[in-house]
Design a binder for these strands. Sequence first.
RNA 1: GGGCCGGUAGCUUAGUCAGGCAGAGCGAAAGGCUCUUAACCUUUAGGUCGGGGGUUCAAAUCCCUCUCGGCCCGCCA
Length: 497
Amino acid sequence: MTIHWADVAAEKLAGQGPQTVATGITPSGQIHLGNMREVMTADAVYRALLDRGVEARLIYIADTYDPLRRLYPFLPKSFEEHVGKPLSEIPCPEGCCESYADHFLLPFFDSLDRLGIEPEVHRADRMYKEGLYVDVIKTALEKRDEIARILKEVSGRDLPQDWCPLDVICRSCGRLNTTKVVGFDLARETADYVCKCGHQGTASFSGGGKLAWRVDWPARWSILKVTMEPFGKDHATAGGSYDTGKRISEEIYGYSAPYPVVYEWIHLKGKGAMHSSTGIVVTIRDMLDVVPPEVLRYLIIRSKPEKHIEFDPGLPLLNLIEEYDRRAGEERTLELSTVGAEGPAQVPYRHMVTAVQIAGNDPEQLFAVLDRSGYDTTNRDQILSRASNVRAWLDRYAPPFVKFQLQETLPSKVKNIDPELREALGVLAGRIEGKCAEDIHNEVYAVAEERGIDGKKLFGAIYVAFLGQKQGPKVGWFLASLDEEFVKERLIAASAD
RNA sequence: GGGCCGGUAGCUUAGUCAGGCAGAGCGAAAGGCUCUUAACCUUUAGGUCGGGGGUUCAAAUCCCUCUCGGCCCGCCA
């Protein structure tokens, strides 16, 4: 019996007072599955804490005050002028949201909700503007030399003479990365700066700028009293931002660094790590179109955070879904993956792949097909939702050989079928009337046997006649789901020449 | 150059902290249900635990070393 990693972390933290589990992501682009690992990891530990009766909260800090680093491939050329501005101060790239940051945050929040993750949200720009950072900014400026020394000692990085832990926003051009702080006044809580754009001015500690990342992070820990935080392996390396953050937190802010959980990246099978700038991205919303939220949770919760996840949205995704649906995984993992009261699906995803393609977009037809196959269709909402998952999967990720399409007219390939097989199709046409799926299926075997034909070949011929390809869904059930006259006509047409 | 994480069956992996018979799922193969249609049942095969060395009665597990993959030591989750 293995203790789940979330419980291991929770056990370490138990008995140390109320816990604040923090996560943070910069909404600089589509928030993808890789990013989601951070939040899922935090949520798993949060749940594990609650399960053992520890008082805990889950917070999510949106780094909305980070500057836009560069013109990402998905942005219009016109956004060049916004590079360097805080994400919260840039307009929405598609004109539908209040800001650039919101454009990527809102769909992400929607996804979190569906995943059953309900963090308290803190937007960095608001925290700065509301003055929550004023004290930590003052301390950082006062102890600038000490911070610089820590950064040098831990990361080996030499900072320029005029380095300042506070980056200010130019009042004229709105950029964070083009200004230089030339002086500050702790009493008035302002900093003086010059900007490359030619402007010079004075910026307030409340919203006039932000701390450099390596200082911002530990400062935030002390402001929000963070006790546990997962982060990507980029921050975890020796000399990385956790190491410097830990020292800054303890020595500058007198606050113990949070308990770390380091997570690995999620790779897209055959393409490498997900990264918004490389275009190797599957967004959370994309995935939620294809799998139910429980399965997405399961994907992340079943792997230990330090293992990278090789994610393949093609055929192997079905294994993951079915492993979850059949409750084949480890019990605690399944428990932590649950969202609400929704149970596992009654209809296996794989079968749904066939059913959906037979039924097309007609829900009644779909229920008819499923009823015929003997599945429980009482939970109609769940079935429709799964069916819509399956359609999206077929559309985007399914390998060609699982797809089929009923041919409106007799496929020309029928001409290549052996005459004796075609004849058998004609015989079959006369034997399906009023028969149920299973009986039709049996007729196929019966006809093949009577005529001394290899059953395999006869099945193949049927598929060619209806789908134009050599394989397809289970024949009896497939034919039974179609209009009987249509089936007869098609079989006769295929047998004639 | 220095560091961090990972390498266990064809694939995904548990077990590594705290040494004690290498386990599971998927896939594969064989058989069964008068039935290949991605359905079900039964059974089987599959391993140099990345390589080498060391410690030990005993090593996937601890130590050293090499190697492969990924990442970090500017910025960035």
